[in-house]
Nucleic acid binder design. Structure first.
Lengths: 371, 371
DNA sequence: CTGTTAGCGCATTCAC
DNA sequence: GTGAATGCGCTAACAG
């Protein structure tokens, strides 16, 4: 009973507040924007009271309309189902929080059409910039990005015709770390399993690095003279298996190939030297691929499938620890955070040429690749 | 070279289009809003051309400001890390898509403070409604929801002082299904493991249903005369273990209790009758709890921990299939979809009293509870 | 220090 | 059929 229940059907506007405080809208606006130096303590108190009483909250839309910026940025994710995306998201949120930005999160759900629509929607809401984990975009997207007007930063994947900032994993290094680890452990056959590499640069880079290393060229070499065991492919054979998760039939076929290899009586070529408990290792290019493999192997070979094949994957999903799978963890949080920082600089007017930020992955050794 | 490269630093406005089409803004507006009947075919063509040429896209903000609705709704999620949230999100997106709404996704990251801030932010952006997977809200949130002005629908959890629509799992039924399953399988000791139940209604409901059933009252009874095996607790003992995932120390203590029980030489009371390969079953109230348990058990008892304890959980995370854990899958997609539908009706002015929509869970039996 | 004026981009009467 | 005003809620010059 003490205060008038302000169950106002209509939200209070700046005009209401001005009237209630017995002043003009300008002063209210000044108060809201922290121009405190220009307000007498007395007026300020009245304004505060009025705002409190009316439960006034400035309309961001109107505000944005006027000053031409709404503090909104778009975050377009290809697949929220991938833990990677959620983790990146967290970094993005933290950074936005720190910079006073509000992320509009959009989920393309692996549909190129969705991606296009969301991009269009975002420009329609006049976001000041976008962070995109691209799916199938090319040059035409550039146009969708407001005729080249609105700043964009790419995450994980670069886009062919687009000269934009990009932040992601150091794919080459990550693939090399994984491959070397497998080589050191003495596997004599390594399959790199990856989704179709066309369109997605990170997949391509990982696969290329793997292939290059396996073909004996030794990768991008570390510091010379470093005491690192110089692992070379030696007799180890490598190949790439493409797993198109979007197509059940194709997946079945690829997995059949794998099963065939697993059921060969013995190593066709080198039936000699040291006996390896498991000679074949699977290097999954990301978590979804790894999960698909694991599910199949478990269904096919039972709970102890890990005694038949070793699995290693880029990405560190929550089930990796549970199943003892060695992984290469991406600095996902940092990736998201950095992406926002880049974008923010761009929004603030930075004009430099497109930058790349490659962050290192971390090998987490578990039972799957031991012995 | 054919068209003038419209690398306009400033986006085209409705005025630009009007000028380019040699007409007034009104006609453009009409065109945009589909009032085609009021446009001569000739004018229409000119407008289309102008829009195309200028790459014009109406400003949703200005539009919203004018007509008082911006088609924005807020989706406030307590924890995106929980697969449950992501799945609900997908349903929400689909429904929004169908209804022409745009969801503003906010992630409270389990921080009550974040939740409060986002709620405030959302009202500041004048969303037309919110879908809330509440964290620690109570009556005061109601005020934050725009003085009771903006429609809200709750997901998974109800809030004490708030009479809002709510959609979620039929928690009681789900808990009963799980408990019955365990009873049927002959476990003679069942622990219900749950995060602190204060504040979160769904946890409380699940725990209560479990306890009630275990105490012998038989649950909410099925159809009379149904041929269902009438499972009664019999000699089976039940208890509740609280696992506060936010507090490492508490978790450690709770897990220690569990270990103690697991290391008892034999069933203290009923050392008789049929031999059960595993007499203790853990009924996890949700996926995060289950994961925590599984990780601990694996670390403590090795890869074959499942031979010592059975695990069952509400939620069906991706690792469940991989580890053969029996689960109760929630109709997450539908939950999200229905939530939006409810909200939409409310936005359209529906005034009826608060409704509850309880959807059934589905038991997915896997190896963990077999034998 | 404070109030007045003029738009931001658009939808909507209301006249022509 | 069509176009000229008016104002949504707010900020940004300008005056006092």
């Amino acid at each position: 009973m003490s205060s008038t229940p302000p169950l106002a059907p209509r939200r209070a506007t700046i005009t209401d507040v001005a009237r209630a405080a017995g002043t003009g809208k300008t002063s209210i606006s000044r108060y809201l924007n922290g121009e405190l130096g220009a307000l007498s303590a007395e007026l300020r108190a009245r304004i505060e009271a009025a705002i409190e009483r009316l439960d006034y909250q400035p309309n961001q839309m109107a505000r944005g309309l006027k000053r031409g910026r709404n503090r909104l940025i778009g975050l377009l994710l290809a697949d929220l189902t991938n833990p990677y995306s959620v983790e990146v998201l967290q970094g993005v949120e933290a950074a936005c929080h720190a910079l006073g930005l509000m992320p509009l999160i959009c989920h393309a759900a692996n549909e190129v059409e969705m991606e296009r629509r969301y991009l269009q929607l975002l420009t329609t809401y006049r976001v000041e910039g976008v962070i995109v984990n691209a799916l199938g975009v090319r040059e035409d997207t550039l146009r969708a990005l407001g005729g080249g007007g609105i700043p964009a930063v790419l995450v994980d994947r670069s886009v062919d015709g687009l000269a934009a900032d990009m932040v992601g994993l150091d794919n080459r290094a990550a693939a090399e770390i994984g491959t070397r680890h497998l080589l050191e452990k003495g596997f004599d056959e390594i399959w790199f399993v990856v989704q179709p590499v066309e369109q997605v640069s990170s997949r391509r880079l990982r696969e290329e690095a793997f292939r290059k290393l396996m073909s004996g060229s030794g990768g991008a070499g570390g510091k010379r003279g470093r005491a690192r065991k110089d692992v070379s492919p030696g007799a180890a054979r490598g190949r790439t298996l493409v797993l198109n998760l979007a197509d059940t039939a194709e997946v079945g076929q690829a997995l059949a190939e794998l099963d065939a290899a697993l059921n060969e009586p013995a190593s066709a070529t080198s039936a000699t030297t040291r006996r390896a408990p498991r000679r074949l290792a699977l290097f999954a290019a990301n978590a979804p691929v790894a999960l698909c493999l694991a599910l199949h192997l478990k269904a096919r070979y039972g709970d102890d499938w890990q005694t038949r094949v070793a699995l290693l994957c880029i990405d560190d999903p929550e089930w990796a620890e549970l199943t003892g799978v060695t992984t290469i963890r991406q600095p996902t949080y940092d990736i998201g955070y950095r992406a926002v920082e880049f974008l923010h600089q761009r929004i603030e007017g930075l004009e430099s040429h497109a930058r790349d930020c490659l962050l290192p992955g971390e090998l987490i050794v578990r039972a799957s690749t031991s012995l």
